[in-house]
Design a protein around this nucleic acid. Structure first.
Lengths: 205, 205
DNA sequence: TGGAAAACATGACGATCAGCATGTAAGTTC
DNA sequence: GAACTTACATGCTGATCGTCATGTTTTCCA
């Protein structure tokens, strides 16, 4: 599978590092934060405990790195899907759909695990906050470009409402809530958003 | 403080039981699910490990009982505040405020901890699902009584949208997001909800 | 009032955890 | 190609975890 031939030190370092971070994400998704141990992580990454020790001085540092790794991945994913979006009312609905798919995927599941854990872990929290805010800002910029006719204040409101609603729905999905109702709620919200969009563009207050 | 005089067996049982469950909730809120250990719980409840062993065969059972204890408390809290609500458009705004305060309190924080943990713990999940659904249903009934003029389908939509949005906002609050923006978003949502309420009651489609 | 039963305490068990100390292999540099 | 550094593996350590076996206190009932 992987070339066992010749690897630069930098290559080796980077490979096992990303392997560890990916394994951490997998672990968070599959067994949850509470049972995510260093042993479990390096078992999935096919490396020893000494390796993670060499790359990260402590488990907390691994988690902090995983946060950055995660948001980088999420950012790429969102940016890729947000680039080709139609404008106008249909653009709003499409943007909401994209935000939903983004915030309901496995990556966001891992993010949620870290979020909730970070509530009672100041160190982890300090690592998450700036990265998460940057992600939010970047996504917001992409979205506002879609609905350029809307007053920016309006667009921002719609964005954050969608994000928070989506996060709530994602939580519901994680626990195994009714998927049909979730779809229904999302459709309803899209209807409302489009309606608000039209009101704001045709008859600004 | 507590009467050391004479306690019935039933009283003793019930007292330490609720003490354990309350301590469990405190533990979830203050140190999070990952670091909620039996030792920590019975240290807060001022009892020994043997006590929790006597009342609950395993930690999972304690957690399941805590879930029920939690939702019972939440239910009482919501019911008490939802009983005296005005009707009409102002009632809708007031209901949203109440749902927000309900879902952003410490009790809901504990629920969120258990929710997220339950995603990767089938046993805990099986304990949570029915209780949570019952809570949702009961709250929905209380709310629909407030906005009785609205078609029930509409009211249910508004309710679930509010609940999920609120949960997302609660997550944001837990991580230390901007409180001002949260207030702003909630106000905006109330405006939207009232608007939708008026549309639906004055000009039904 | 004394024995049964329930409620609770104490201490120990194996398992697992994160962290460290030490050893080995792979790449780099001269 | 030999010294050197980096990357990784192995094995241990003390702490903590959940669970259990056994002892002690409190209430109950006859």
């Amino acid at each position: 599978m992987t070339e066992t031939a010749h690897r630069t030190q930098a290559q080796r370092r980077e490979q096992t590092r990303t392997a560890l971070l990916d394994a951490t994400i997998d672990c968070l998704v599959e067994v949850g934060y509470a049972r995510t141990s260093v042993q479990e992580i390096c078992a999935r990454a096919r490396v020893s405990k000494g390796a993670v020790q060499h790359h990260f001085t402590a488990k907390a540092e691994l988690m902090a790195a995983a946060v950055e790794h995660l948001t980088t991945k999420l950012r790429k994913q969102l940016a890729a899907s947000l680039d080709d979006l139609p404008g106008g009312g249909t653009g709003v609905a499409a943007a909401i759909d994209l935000l939903w798919t983004g915030y309901s995927g496995t990556l966001s599941t891992a993010v949620t695990e870290l979020w909730v854990a970070a509530r009672t872990d100041p160190e982890l929290r300090a690592a998450i906050r700036p990265v998460d805010r940057a992600l939010g800002r970047a996504t917001l910029e992409h979205v506002t470009q879609v609905a350029g006719e809307l007053p920016p204040e309006r667009a921002e409101m719609l964005f954050w409402l969608t994000v928070n609603l989506t996060r709530g729905l994602a939580l519901d999905a994680e626990l195994g809530g009714d998927p049909a109702r979730r779809r229904q709620l999302l459709e309803e919200w899209k209807r409302i958003a489009v309606l608000l969009y039209q009101d704001a563009t045709t008859a600004p207050s």
